[in-house]
């Protein structure tokens, strides 16, 4: 009898996840509180951008998370495709919406920051444009994953797409940067290269807070996925038992 899930180790995962989870929640709370304090009160306003520079402390970590989530998604997809490892599928499925949310957050904060700086909610700035395309890649991934009646089929198709997208991300980034320099470049950039140490502290704290938050939500979503999988196979078994009932009396 093969176990429907190859799947002895999800049990081990659940045990480990259960132990890590409270720590992740705690780290998120502490880091977020410290980060917000430094970002909103204990750091100076920018001489050029004034108070609106504080959006950077959400915007920049969100951008990093968006990109690193996509990288992780590609790694999980590769593992899922090559080794057909159940947990890798669960990771990919669980984290794609989180990555998409970080990408969306990055876009929204970038756009809000653009209003006081550029006088408009959207400028075709190279970085913002790349993030927008990344958001489209996430949307395509999620749409493909959920487009099939058989969830396993959607997972494997979207895993192939994640790899294709991952190869394309640097190409798209390069193209967009290049396209941007061809047209008028934006004069002020959100989170330029020269960052003062007083800004670095809240930036690092907020990044760590986002990481911790990411781990927290990922663990939560992975456990949900595993439970949902169990529920699905339990229902399936129930339906199957019912369907075969008339056959039971017949000689085999």
């Amino acid at each position: 009898m093969i176990d429907l899930a190859t799947f002895a180790n999800p049990a081990r995962f659940s045990r480990i996840a259960g132990r890590v989870f409270p720590w992740a929640v705690g780290a998120t709370a502490v880091l977020m509180a410290a980060g917000l304090y430094f970002a909103l009160f204990a750091s100076p306003p920018d001489y050029q951008q004034g108070e609106s520079v504080r959006i950077m402390y959400v915007h920049v970590p969100a951008a990093w998370m968006a990109l690193s989530s996509y990288t992780l998604l590609a790694v999980a997809s590769a593992v899922a495709l090559v080794w057909r490892h159940l947990l890798a599928d669960v990771v990919a499925r669980a984290m794609a919406p989180i990555g998409a949310c970080f990408t969306f957050l990055c876009l929204v904060t970038g756009s809000l920051w653009g209003k006081p700086m550029w006088g408009t909610f959207w400028v075709w700035d190279a970085r913002l444009t790349s993030v927008l395309v990344l958001f489209f890649l996430y949307l395509g991934y999620l749409a493909l994953q959920n487009a099939f009646d058989d969830p396993a089929r959607g997972l494997r198709a979207s895993a192939i797409l994640a790899l294709v997208g991952f190869v394309n991300v640097p190409i798209i980034k390069f193209s967009v940067d290049w396209w941007n320099t061809l047209h008028q470049p934006a004069s002020i950039k959100l989170g330029g290269p020269a960052i003062d140490a007083s800004m670095l502290v809240p930036l690092i704290l907020m990044t760590l807070a986002f990481e911790a938050y990411f781990v927290t939500v990922l663990l939560l979503r992975m456990r949900t996925e595993l439970v949902r999988g169990k529920l699905r196979s339990a229902r399936l078994r129930a339906a199957e038992a019912d369907e075969y009932l008339p056959n039971i009396g017949k000689p085999a």
Binding site: D150, A152, L236
Partner: peptide, 10 residues
């Protein structure tokens, strides 16, 4: 053979 998540035969 698994079809969807259903074990068809083994």
């Amino acid at each position: 053979c698994l079809r969807g998540e259903r074990l068809v035969f083994e």
